[in-house]
C-alpha cells in the first residue's frame, strides 16, 4: 500500500480527518471513493454483461427465413401440402398460392389438418381454413407468410413477412413477384 492511502479509523495527519471519523472530506478521499466504486462496480458489471451477452447466440443454426418450395406445378389444384422443414402449409387454390404456418400460436406445437381447418394436439386449439381461432387457448390466428416467385419460376416462402390470409400469390402468366436474392438473412 502506498503512503498516500488514507488509513481508515485513524487520524492520518493533523490537517485532515480519516474517512471513518472525519466530518471533513479531503479531496483525495473523495476521489478515491468515487473512482474506487466506479472501478469496482464498472469492472464487475462489464464482466457480467459480457458473460451474459455471450450467451445470446449471434449465429443461428436454423432454417432460413426464406424457403424455396419448388415449382408451382409440383402442387395440384386444391392441395394443402405440409412442408416439414419449416412446418408450414402451402395451399393452392386455382392459380393462387398461400403459405400458412403450422406452428400453433399457443405454445408452439404443430397443428394437424382436421375435417375443416386445423387442430392442435397439445391443448386442443381449433383453427378454420384461414387459420382463425375457432376455439381453444390459442391467442391469435395462425400466421400467413408472403410468397413470391423467383426468376426461375420457383416459389419462395418468406417467413419474415406476415400477410393477411386473404392474400394469394397468383402464378402463371409471367413471373410476377420479387427477385430471388438467394439464400436468406439471418433470423
Amino acid at each position: 500500500m502506498s503512503k498516500s492511502l488514507p488509513v481508515v479509523g485513524q487520524e492520518p495527519s493533523p490537517e485532515g480527518r480519516s474517512l471513518k471519523t472525519g466530518r471533513k472530506w479531503r479531496r483525495r478521499d473523495f476521489v478515491l471513493l468515487v473512482f474506487g466504486w466506479i472501478g469496482t462496480l464498472g469492472s464487475l458489471s462489464a464482466a457480467t454483461l459480457a458473460g451474459m451477452r455471450g450467451l445470446l447466440p449471434n449465429l443461428l443454426d436454423e432454417p432460413n427465413q426464406r424457403f424455396r418450395a419448388g415449382k408451382p406445378e409440383d402442387y395440384s389444384d386444391g392441395s394443402v401440402a405440409f412442408l416439414d422443414e419449416i412446418r408450414t402449409f402451402l395451399i393452392r387454390k386455382g392459380d393462387g398460392f398461400r403459405a400458412m404456418s403450422g406452428i400453433c400460436t399457443h405454445l408452439g406445437c404443430t397443428v394437424n389438418r382436421a375435417d375443416s381447418g386445423y387442430r392442435c394436439p397439445c391443448h386442443g386449439s381449433l383453427f378454420d381454413e384461414d387459420g382463425n381461432v375457432l376455439s381453444g387457448p390459442a391467442p391469435r390466428a395462425l400466421d400467413s407468410f408472403g410468397i413470391a416467385q423467383a426468376r426461375d419460376g420457383r416459389l419462395v416462402i418468406d417467413r419474415g413477412r406476415s400477410v393477411s390470409p386473404e392474400e394469394f400469390l397468383v402464378v402463371g402468366s409471367g413471373g410476377k413477384g420479387l427477385e430471388d436474392r438467394g439464400g436468406g438473412e439471418q433470423a
Binding site: C109, T110, C122, P137
Partner: peptide
C-alpha cells in the same frame, strides 16, 4: 415436426399443463 397426440408433460407439471390449456 410432429408432437405425439396427446403430448403430456410429466405428472408434476400436468396441473400446469391443464391450466395453460385454458
Amino acid at each position: 415436426i410432429h408432437p405425439p397426440n396427446p403430448a403430456k408433460a410429466p405428472w408434476y407439471f400436468l396441473a400446469l399443463q391443464e391450466l395453460v390449456a385454458h
